[in-house]
Design a protein around this nucleic acid. Structure first.
Lengths: 98, 98
DNA sequence: GACAGATTTAGCCAATTTGCTAAATTTGTT
DNA sequence: AACAAATTTAGCAAATTGGCTAAATCTGTC
């Protein structure tokens, strides 16, 4: 199917997804999650921020539908739900180079 | 080439591009520009905002490297530089549906 | 049940974003 | 030169975002 014109509500929803991606730390986490599920503490160590901060970032990604979580024991594991977002990076890289 | 890990600076640059996309009006304009170049006044009429507002939105897209502009007479025409961003929409749509 | 660890929620403050109006700039016309 | 149209820049107020610390919640262990 070709690129049909989204409704205003769809544009708004799409913008929400892009907004969730519009943060270096969240992109780093997504990149890590593309290799497999990770708990919050692992991701906190990865990005070097406090756990509450990381938890809220993950909450944003989850709300946007990009990741999902599963509680196992005392830990919560996040995983990438839509691997297609990884395809963005290639295009975005080309954007930056002209 | 596989998905190699970007540097912190690259993550930051990518986030900037996503941030430029994280706005319903800007997405609408990009969609319109995917059909061909448009002047600021046309885009302003399309999104229903004041021209200064639209001008600044376009400035953001240009700074992110997504669009480029060309002045012809008293008008400035914008065009989509990286059509690959249109591919995002398909994936983003799938994000919203689960 | 007390306690430690992992996670989330709440509250606070600094920084950014957004949209507007007003002013400045540029271009084409008379 | 005067004027009108198109665009950008500047300045302002409202809303949102981002990170922290403190407090609350949940889980497993002793």
């Amino acid at each position: 199917m070709a690129t049909s014109k989204p409704t205003p509500a769809q544009f708004k929803a799409q913008a929400q997804v892009f907004k969730a991606l519009a943060h270096p730390g969240r992109l780093l986490m997504i990149h890590e999650l593309s290799r497999g599920e990770r708990c919050v503490c692992e991701l906190a160590a990865l990005v070097g921020s406090e756990m509450p901060t990381v938890s809220r970032h993950l909450s944003q990604l989850k709300h946007a539908g990009i990741v999902d979580d599963e509680k196992r024991g005392s830990q919560v594991f996040y995983r990438l739900v839509t691997p297609c977002v990884m395809n963005f990076f290639e295009c975005v890289a080309s954007v930056r180079k002209g």
